[in-house]
């Protein structure tokens, strides 16, 4: 397991190192662009992101103390109005505040905590499926790829994925690195992997 981790990490570093060096350079070759996407997919499919990008109405819990990934406790749901803010009496912000709880297993926090819209589903989706969704304005909140990249860089709740608090594994890389990777991938024509 450790060697696999090392390989993955090395791959991630090389992708991002390349990114920094070549931000102003011409677009990537198709193979490089797909590798760029692979790095982005590693972020989007990571539990810190995917656990709240679900198709059904229930966010997921995962982590060392939760056993296998499971449905968020306490009957927490998207909200019958589809808002992603929870239900009357049990809003996301009933427990999730502006910062992470300092207590192990306490509620993580960031501004405007909520569930992503159901059409933006990442949980248990393949690289090709997420890629198609990201590029589809009917399923990505009507955003251009440039707008998506900036959303990833600037949104506080998205940024939480890299600073999730004690006891939780952060998403790989950083908001800035993922932003740059999205830019390069978009510039290279945003190719998607084939299943």
């Amino acid at each position: 397991m450790s060697s696999a981790t090392t390989l993955l990490t090395a791959a991630a570093i090389s992708i991002f190192a390349l990114g920094y060096a070549s931000a102003q350079e011409p677009a990537l070759q198709p193979g490089e662009a797909l590798a760029e996407w692979a790095g982005i997919y590693a972020v989007l499919s990571h539990p810190r992101c995917a656990n709240c990008h679900v198709e059904d109405d229930r966010p997921r819990w995962s982590g060392p103390h939760y056993g296998a990934t499971r449905v968020h406790g306490f009957n927490v749901q998207r909200g019958t109005d589809g808002s992603g803010l929870g239900n009357p009496g049990l809003r996301c912000t009933t427990c999730h505040f502006e910062s992470n709880s300092k207590d192990l297993h306490g509620p993580p926090g960031a501004e405007n905590w909520h569930l992503a819209p159901a059409e933006m589903v990442w949980w248990q989706k393949s690289s090709a499926q997420i890629c198609a969704q990201i590029k589809d304005p009917t399923r990505n909140g009507g955003r251009s790829l440039e707008e998506i990249a900036r959303h990833v860089r600037d949104d506080k709740l998205v940024g939480w994925g890299w600073e999730p608090g004690a006891g939780r594994e952060p998403a790989p890389g950083s908001a800035e690195e993922t932003y740059l990777a999205l830019e390069r991938w978009a510039d290279a024509g945003a190719p998607c992997p084939v299943e």
Binding site: H65, Y66, G73, N75, H105
Partner: peptide
């Protein structure tokens, strides 16, 4: 186990 996230009990629903 340490708290209600991993030692829970029946809830209303």
């Amino acid at each position: 186990q340490s708290n209600f996230h991993d030692f829970d009990a029946m809830r209303m629903f």
